[in-house]
């Protein structure tokens, strides 16, 4: 049994399927997440695949701030992701609402709607930072 569990933790750490969802931000963060998938950074070497389908997802990367309309969408998405899951907020917008915090349509960071596991600061964070953020969240799967 112990070994099965060990193997499961190992597989979970090695096989993360990710999806990114861009909320009310400027896109800069999405672009950097895209860039992290491509040859220079290559997320797939860690077993991270971009699935784009919430039902297949382990890691959700949220970029951008929450507004009154996309709040529901975000919530729906999260509900479709089977546990165990990891939620990473990428960029200042997703952390606090960032530069748009005072705008009338902005509620705030992603943590207003969901429980965020890892926060990656930056506007936008570099792809290296995004990768580091995802990998540092892996310990969540130990339990």
């Amino acid at each position: 049994m112990g070994m099965m569990k060990h193997l499961m933790v190992r597989s979970r750490r090695r096989s993360l399927w990710m999806m990114h969802f861009c909320l009310g931000g400027c896109n800069g963060c999405s672009i950097e997440i895209m860039a992290a998938l491509t040859p220079m950074y290559d997320l797939e070497r860690f077993g991270i695949l971009n699935t784009g389908n919430p039902k297949h997802t382990d890691v959700l990367l949220v970029g951008g701030s929450v507004n009154h309309r996309n709040r529901r969408t975000l919530k729906n998405l999260i509900d479709q992701i089977p546990a165990p899951r990891l939620i990473v907020a990428v960029g200042t917008c997703a952390l606090t609402g960032g530069i748009f915090n005072e705008a009338y349509n902005i509620i705030g960071g992603a943590n207003r709607v969901v429980d965020v596991d890892v926060y990656v600061p930056g506007c936008p964070p570099k792809p290296e930072a995004v990768i580091d953020g995802i990998l540092s969240g892996l310990d969540k799967f130990e339990q």
């Binding site: 193997l7 096989s15 089977p82």
Partner: peptide, 28 residues
């Protein structure tokens, strides 16, 4: 494929990790 695309690519055993992980997810 990854190599052809100029990437390093996942380990060869990757599909097995994926499969095992999927079995361990919540059944929805």
């Amino acid at each position: 494929s990854a190599r052809l695309q100029g990437r390093y690519g996942p380990p060869i055993l990757q599909p097995f990790y994926d499969l095992y992980k999927l079995f361990g997810k919540d059944p929805l």
